[in-house]
């Protein structure tokens, strides 16, 4: 290997290392600023109660959407809850995590939860069809 190829090779290793380092540094330092506002303790109670009030309606809809299929019903309920949580977070300008935290706190504070609400989830039984 001639001298200039040796130099080119060294430069190549350097570029490879630089690219790797750039990838690591870029990933380690990239920021997505989260919403600054957080739910206050009073708001958490309020949000938890609001979600609890919505729950029977979501569950009833799920029973009709997936009759006789408990896992799918709970999954459908989860989808409704998620949509509500995201809307609520957006409306209040807080992280979605805070809304789910509030729901969890309410469930733990109000337990044991009884029908028509649930503090359980049906064992995973994925639907066999996806097409």
């Amino acid at each position: 290997m001639g001298m200039h190829w040796r130099r080119a090779s060294l430069a190549g290793w350097g570029v490879l290392a630089l690219c790797g380092a750039t990838a690591v540094v870029r990933a380690a330092t990239s920021e997505m600023p989260p919403p600054e506002r957080r739910l206050s303790p009073e708001e958490r109670v309020e949000v938890g109660r609001a979600a609890a009030a919505e729950e029977p309606g979501w569950r009833q809809r799920s029973r009709h959407s997936f009759p006789g299929d408990q896992w799918s019903q709970d999954d459908d309920f989860g989808a409704s809850e998620r949509k509500w949580a995201m809307d609520e977070a957006r409306r209040r300008g807080v992280p979605v995590t805070d809304v789910f935290d509030a729901i969890d706190e309410e469930l733990h504070a109000a337990g044991p939860i009884a029908s028509p609400r649930k503090a359980t989830a049906s064992p995973c039984k994925p639907r066999p069809f996806y097409d």
Binding site: G78, F100, A121, C124
Partner: peptide
């Protein structure tokens, strides 16, 4: 939205795996 729960150090009983994970119906979140 399972990622939000891990951030809270909470397990999610609600499970959406592609296979029937052996799960107990007695698990509770309250």
């Amino acid at each position: 939205s399972q990622g939000h729960f891990l951030a809270l150090n909470r397990g999610s009983i609600a499970c959406g795996e592609a296979w029937p994970v052996p799960m107990s119906a007695m698990l509770r979140g309250d």
